[in-house]
């Protein structure tokens, strides 16, 4: 019996102590995808012990409230581990979602990757 290879949803790069995560999907809408993205993000903290994480949204055009839920859970895990989660390159439509839900107050959001890396 063959097992289906797991599709890559995140691109993870280390910049010094900071782990930069890029999303492969342009739309983070599908529930099953979101669950897998959540597992991959949580494993960065829980299994790999990463404490400084930057989520780069430059590829992302859409996301749903289920995705927001995963980012909130990730933020809690990072904080519990004594680390820091930052976000950057959020497009204006998605930024509006963060603003109307007031999540722009919960998350530290930076304009671009360079500014975010300097903010850690």
């Amino acid at each position: 019996m063959s097992t289906q290879p797991r599709r890559r949803r995140l691109e993870v790069e280390d910049h010094g102590e900071v782990t930069v995560v890029n999303f492969i999907d342009r739309k983070i809408l599908d529930e099953q995808n979101i669950a897998k993205i959540g597992e991959d993000l949580f494993s960065l903290v829980e299994e790999l012990g990463r404490k400084k994480i930057l989520l780069n949204f430059s590829n992302v055009e859409y996301l749903s409230s289920a995705a927001l839920g995963k980012f909130i859970s990730l933020n809690k895990k990072v904080q519990q581990a004594g680390g820091k989660l930052l976000m950057c390159n959020i497009n204006p439509d998605i930024m509006e979602v963060f603003e109307i839900t007031r999540l722009d107050r919960l998350f530290s959001i930076q304009r671009d990757e360079q500014t975010a890396l300097e903010a850690f």
């Binding site: 409230s65 289920a66 927001l68 839920g69 995963k70 909130i72 859970s73 809690k76 979602v97 109307i100 839900t101 007031r102 999540l103 107050r105 919960l106």
Partner: peptide, 21 residues
């Protein structure tokens, strides 16, 4: 209400709010 301070960190409950917006 997902906008209340005490609910900001809840990982769900924003669906109907987003629809209304």
């Amino acid at each position: 209400d997902p906008l209340f301070d005490e609910n900001l960190e809840r990982s769900s409950g924003r669906g109907i709010f987003l629809m209304r917006h």
